[in-house]
Computed example of a mutant assay.
Amino acid sequence: MTIRHALRSQPVLRTERLTLSQLGPDHLDLVMAGLADEDAMRLTGTRTTFTREQVGAHLAALPGADDRADFAITGPDGAYLGEVVLNELEEDDRSMNYRIALAGPSLRGRGFGTEAGRAVVAWGFDVVGLHRVSLEVYAFNPAAQRSYEKIGFVVEGRAREVLRHGDQWIDAVAMSMLDSDPRSA
């Protein structure tokens, strides 16, 4: 199976507490609510304001995409908790970018991101056939960095002063995980 075929055939992933399923048009209202979370926008460095039409068009293009995998995270009660994504496919290098956004501050610090991340990264390596998954996290978000380290991501370096936040410059910490790296339980 090729990388693109595996991405196009995105499965439902299940963990102890979570279900990860294809993000799509049915999630529009939930994604829009997440985009209204000012703290999440700050933590991810997102400055763009997205219209409902833009988000709707993006979500409509996801099912069956062969260059990315966008999973909706739902809890045991079926409540939407956020999204976890593998994107920016570099097919020749078997590499993708990782990102996650939880749908509100009350969900942070409860292990949902780590649990969802472990499942998606394992799927990326074991089924999709990736060699490398990478990310950047802003230095003012050490909780996210700790979560990524629990998944198995390793700090590679630091890009200095990449984000202007208020009157401060913020560094980005580059992290990655290889298919040969140890995985956390």
Rank of each mutant, 00 (worst) to 15 (best):
A36M: 13
L59M: 12
D181L: 08
A65S: 15
E91Q: 15
L23C: 00
D70A: 05
D181S: 15
D37I: 00
D26Q: 14
R94E: 09
V155S: 09
G109T: 03
L62T: 05
L59G: 05
A36L: 12
M177R: 06
R42P: 02
R8T: 08
L18F: 07
S106P: 12
V155P: 07
R183L: 11
R108N: 08
H131L: 13
F112I: 09
R14Q: 15
T2R: 13
A139Q: 11
G157A: 12
V120N: 00
S176V: 06
D66T: 12
R132E: 07
D93T: 06
L178H: 12
L178M: 15
V120D: 01
V137Y: 04
V162Y: 04
V128C: 02
P11S: 10
L7C: 04
F71E: 05
R160E: 13
E16R: 12
I3Q: 02
S147L: 00
V128S: 01
H27Y: 06
A6W: 00
R8F: 10
R108T: 03
F153E: 01
A116P: 06
G45Y: 08
F112Q: 00
A174H: 10
L18D: 08
D67P: 00
D39S: 01
T114G: 07
T2D: 15
G109L: 02
G82R: 00
L7D: 01
A159Y: 13
P76K: 04
L23S: 04
L30G: 05
D93K: 11
A6V: 11
R52S: 11
L28T: 07
G124P: 03
G75K: 06
R164Q: 12
R17Q: 11
G64H: 11
R14Y: 07
R17K: 14
D26M: 08
E161A: 15
V154P: 02
T44E: 04
P63V: 14
R99S: 11
R68V: 09
G104M: 03
S184H: 12
S147M: 06
E53C: 08
R164H: 09
M175E: 04
A61Q: 13
L43R: 01
R132P: 03
E88Y: 11
Q168V: 09
A69H: 03
V120E: 05
G124I: 06
Q168R: 13
S180A: 14
R14H: 14
D126N: 14
R118F: 05
D67R: 08
D39T: 03
E115P: 01
S184R: 15
L102D: 01
D66W: 07
L30P: 03
T19V: 11
G129I: 04
E83C: 05
S184G: 14
L89A: 06
A139P: 06
T46Y: 04
G56P: 05
A159V: 10
L102Q: 00
G166F: 08
M96K: 07
A6Y: 05
A72G: 00
V12Y: 09
E53F: 06
Q145R: 15
E90C: 03
R52A: 09
A159F: 10
R17I: 07
